[in-house]
């Protein structure tokens, strides 16, 4: 970090940055706040606390939480294998972990629905077990887990790669089993990164829309996620209802983002790793 004045371009880059952020992010977002203030507390509360809205919020958060937990475990597994082992095809696998980032969500929705619908390959298999995936809350979890999987992998992987081998060797010398070493040495070091990945996955999953409208079935109270309810409200000319719900989700996004920033600062202090 240089003191202002040594390097050129402070004024110009400050101007450009705030111009973009102001026009593209701040100005549009302020519209939501202004619209919500027009409502007043009573109306706002009434719109947010009706059973259908609550059900949608509960589903969005619940499914996102489940998806993030799922990603936490399987993401850690993938990150571990990629960071620690050599095997044929490793490079290809490493590259393809980011697929859900690069794949448009509409395409993800289309193909996941084709697979997990009762007529699809996986849907039929789950059907034999009596489990419905597509058009049930489980389908929402699958889509959310799919789009946010790379977050956990990409946060955990560099930490696993850079963890000092001496730590693990010392543990082994002291007679710890591999499992004990993992729990007592590796996991604590990994925790900030894992939590960051978890929070990122959660944030992404809560907001996800494109892939879920295809797979969810959209039943009010049952499989209707909050972003879809916003769209539904708009289509009923209910701007107030849509804006109020949008504000709630916006605030949640803000809070998650702050949490992520704090986690990353914590994580960076320990490892100098970063994601995104």
């Amino acid at each position: 970090m240089t003191r202002r004045g040594v390097l050129p371009g402070f004024g110009l880059s400050l101007g450009i940055s705030w111009l973009f952020l102001g026009l593209v992010v701040l100005l549009p977002l302020s519209g939501i706040f202004l619209r919500s203030f027009e409502l007043g507390w009573g109306d706002f509360w009434r719109l947010i606390s009706d059973p259908r809205t609550l059900a949608a919020l509960r589903l969005s958060f619940g499914a996102a939480l489940a998806a993030a937990v799922f990603d936490l475990f399987f993401g850690l597994l993938v990150a571990w294998v990629l960071a620690r082992y050599r095997f044929p095809g490793r490079g290809l696998v490493d590259a393809s972990v980011d697929l859900p980032f690069a794949l448009p969500t509409a395409v993800a929705g289309l193909t996941l629905t084709a697979l997990y619908a009762p007529s699809g390959l996986f849907g039929a298999a789950f059907g034999l077990l009596g489990i419905q995936v597509a058009f049930a809350p489980l389908g929402i979890v699958v889509a959310m887990a799919f789009v946010s999987l790379p977050f956990v992998v990409r946060t955990a992987q560099p930490v696993l790669e850079e963890l000092d081998p001496a730590l693990e060797e010392a543990a082994a010398v002291l007679g710890a089993t591999r499992w004990q070493t993992f729990r007592k040495v590796i996991l604590p070091n990994l925790l900030p990164a894992l939590l960051t990945g978890f929070a990122l996955a959660l944030a992404r999953a809560i907001g996800e829309y494109g892939s879920i409208v295809f797979i969810s079935g959209n039943m009010p109270m049952r499989t209707e996620i909050a972003p879809l309810l916003i769209v539904t409200r708009l289509e009923q000319y209910d701007y107030a209802g849509a804006t109020a719900l949008a504000l709630v989700m916006l605030v949640v996004a803000f809070v998650l983002l702050l949490a992520i920033n704090l986690l990353q600062r914590w994580s960076r202090k320990r490892h100098g790793a970063h994601v995104l």
Binding site: T113, A117, P118, S119, G120, A134, F135, V213, G217, N218, M219, P220, L228, V231, T232
Partner: peptide
């Protein structure tokens, strides 16, 4: 008795005809 409530008529037709639900 409705297992899937699509947002549009076309979505429902697809669910019924293509997904066999």
């Amino acid at each position: 008795n409705v297992p899937v409530l699509d947002t549009g008529a076309r979505g429902s037709t697809t669910t019924f005809a293509e997904r066999n639900i």
